[in-house]
Simulated assay, not measured.
Amino acid sequence: MSERGRGDRRGGMSRGGRGGAVRGNRGGMGGRGGRGGGGDRRKGREGNNNRQAKKKGGSKVIIEAHRHRGVFIARGKEDMLVTLNMVVGNTVYGEKKVVVEGSSPEEKKEYRQWNPFRSKLAACILRGIRDIYMGPGSKVLYLGAASGTTVSHVSDIVGPTGAVYAVEMAHRPGRELIEVAKIRTNIVPIIEDARYPAKYRMIVPMVDVLFADVAQRAQAQIFSINASNFLKNDGHFVISIKASCIDSTVAPSTVFSKVRDELIENQFKPIEQISLEPYERDHAVVTGVYRPSKKEKAPE
């Protein structure tokens, strides 16, 4: 299914690079003179049409469901990854919005651009990861939440029936995370050190998915201790690995292999590994299952 929407007034569609939005042409004034000069009538009409579309909110786009549940593609002049905004009218980091009007104000839908240059999870989706294991109703423990950029999109994905337990150690981004959580009620901000999960064991239940973006040398150990406390058997994991933060003296591929081996030793079963180039240099994401059930042999 697809829906027709319109872009945010801030300009045309872009892929979400660091440079921000790329504004559309204003179109010439044309006609009898004006600022556009004395162009012919056809050019004048084209300029007027462009202005009218801009007043209505920008160029039209079509919203298509992505194969990952809760994730969408906005097809327009340039395609972009979006999530359905759980809090209509709210933005978290200045991202663009696409609005789909309904027959009544209650049916209005709003989608938020998901920038892969600011989110490892968005980057791995655009790189073609097979599964992120999150969807409506999922309970996610997120380590390394920072100020809540990616957390807010996970909040959109899991929706009002799901929950995101967002752990961040640093107090400055933690304050911003708390502000995001005041509006997005399915986010539980936890300003604690992820190395000590006992400090938040009374807050976090058993979860379906463990996600980590923790740029520390002991990342695998931090990930493992949180999994042993909170991740269900047969639950899934997504871990973003930054090679230079673990060992900058060897090749990134060597670091990734070492982290995978550590995960396997701690009862994780990696299923997929994917590089985040060109969005992030020397980064990889590994996904898989935790403490998988042993399949019973079929009777002979």
Rank of each mutant, 00 (worst) to 15 (best):
N90D: 13
I73P: 02
V100Y: 05
G89Q: 12
K77C: 02
S104R: 13
G94S: 06
S104C: 12
G102H: 04
E106L: 14
A74L: 06
S104F: 10
E107W: 12
M86I: 01
M86D: 01
V98F: 13
N90H: 12
K108T: 14
E78Q: 13
V88L: 03
G94M: 03
V99D: 14
K96W: 03
N90M: 15
L81H: 07
N85H: 08
G94Y: 11
T91H: 00
K77T: 12
K96G: 10
K109C: 06
S103V: 10
V100F: 05
K109I: 11
E107Q: 15
G94N: 13
M80R: 06
V100M: 03
L81V: 12
K108L: 15
K108S: 06
V99T: 14
V92Y: 07
G94F: 09
S103M: 13
I73S: 04
S103E: 14
G76P: 08
E106S: 14
G94R: 09
E101K: 13
E107D: 13
G102P: 13
G94D: 12
P105T: 10
Y93V: 04
T83K: 11
E101M: 11
V98N: 07
V92F: 13
R75T: 00
G94P: 05
I73M: 13
E101N: 10
S103P: 02
V92A: 02
P105C: 13
K77F: 03
M86K: 03
G102I: 08
E101T: 09
E78K: 15
V88P: 03
N85R: 06
V98K: 02
K97R: 15
G89W: 07
K77Y: 04
K97L: 09
L81F: 08
T91M: 11
